[in-house]
Computed example of a mutant assay.
Amino acid sequence: MRRLVIALLVLAGLLVAADFGSAALAESAVSRQMRSQLGLVDDPAVRINGFPFLTQAISGTYSSVDVDASRISVGKLQELSVSAQLRDVDAPLAMLLGSGPKTLEVGEAEGIVRVPADDLERLVPDVADLRIETLDANALEQAAEDSDDPALAELDPERSVRLVGTGTLPASLPVSLPGLSGGDEIEVTVIASLELSDGRIRTEPRDVQLGGAAQDLPNIPSALLSWFADKFEVPIDPGTLPLEVVPTDVRAVNGQLEVSGEASGLTLGPGSPLSAG
C-alpha cells in the first residue's frame, strides 16, 4: 500500500510538472505572437489562467489569458504599461506549440493603458515631484469646504483626481508673497476632472491651492492661480489601447491614470486586421 501511495504521488507530480511545462511553452508562443500584434520591443508577460492547463489545451479553448507589458514609449510618455485580458480564446495546442504562424480567435478582450505620475510630470512644465491621488466623495466635500467652492462637492469622484507637486514660481510675481520671490518653489495642489475624447485623456483643473501646511499664504492673486492651472490643463495621448479596444473609461487608480475599454470578436495572427506589422 505504501509503495502504491508513493507511486501515485510521483505520478501526480509528473502530471503537474507536465501541465506546467506545457503551459509555459504555450505562454511563450502567445507572448511572441502578442509582441508582434502589439508592436512591442520586448516579449510581454503572458499567463494562461485555469488549472489544469492540459484540459483546456485538449479542447483548444482557454477561458482567459492575461497579457502585460511595461516600459512602453509613446511620444513624451516613456513608462506606460499595457494590460490585456483575452477571454474565450480558441487556439489548438498543436498550433501554439508548432513552428508555423499562430492565430488566436478571441471572444472578448479588455485593455488598459496606465500613465504613471513620472510620465504626467513630463507634460506639466515648471512642476516637479508630481503625485496622482484618488478622491472620494468625502475628500471632495472637504475640498469644497476648504476652498469655499460648493461645485467641487458635485464632481464625480471616479472622474476626478488630485495632482500634487512642487511648482516653480514665475520670475515676475503679480504680487509679493511672504518669504517668496520669483523662481522659488512652492507646493501646488490641483483638483481636476478627467475627460476622455478620441482615446486622449484631458485634465481640467477645477481648483488650485498653493502652499502646504508649512506655508500660510493669504491673498494669493487669481492671476497666479490661473497661471498654474493652465500648466495642468494638458492633453495626454497614451497611444491606442491593446488590440484596438475602444477606450470608454478613465480614472485615477493607485497613483496612475488608467484608460480602459473592451472589444469582442477578434482574430489575432499574421495578416489579421489588428496586426501591427
Rank of each mutant, 00 (worst) to 15 (best):
S193A: 13
Q215K: 11
A192G: 09
V246R: 12
V246A: 14
P218R: 02
D207T: 14
G212M: 07
Q209Y: 10
P247C: 07
P221T: 11
Q209F: 11
L243Y: 06
P221S: 10
L241Q: 01
L217C: 04
L224G: 09
Q209N: 14
S197E: 14
I201K: 00
V246I: 12
S197H: 12
V245R: 02
P205G: 11
L194V: 08
L194D: 03
F232A: 04
A223L: 13
D230I: 01
I236A: 02
L210M: 12
P218H: 01
G239P: 02
S226W: 10
W227G: 03
I201R: 00
D198R: 08
D230R: 09
L217D: 02
G212D: 11
R200F: 01
P205W: 05
I201E: 01
D207P: 08
P247L: 05
A214I: 10
S197G: 07
D198Y: 06
R206S: 07
A223F: 10
P238D: 05
D207V: 13
L196A: 06
Q215D: 15
A229I: 09
D237I: 01
A229K: 08
A213C: 06
A229Q: 09
R206Q: 13
L241M: 06
A214C: 07
K231G: 05
R206V: 03
L241E: 02
F232Q: 03
E195P: 03
I220H: 04
E195Q: 14
R200S: 07
E244R: 12
G239N: 06
E195Y: 09
P247M: 06
R206G: 11
P247S: 07
T203Q: 08
E244Q: 15
F228M: 02
A192P: 04
K231W: 06
L194C: 09
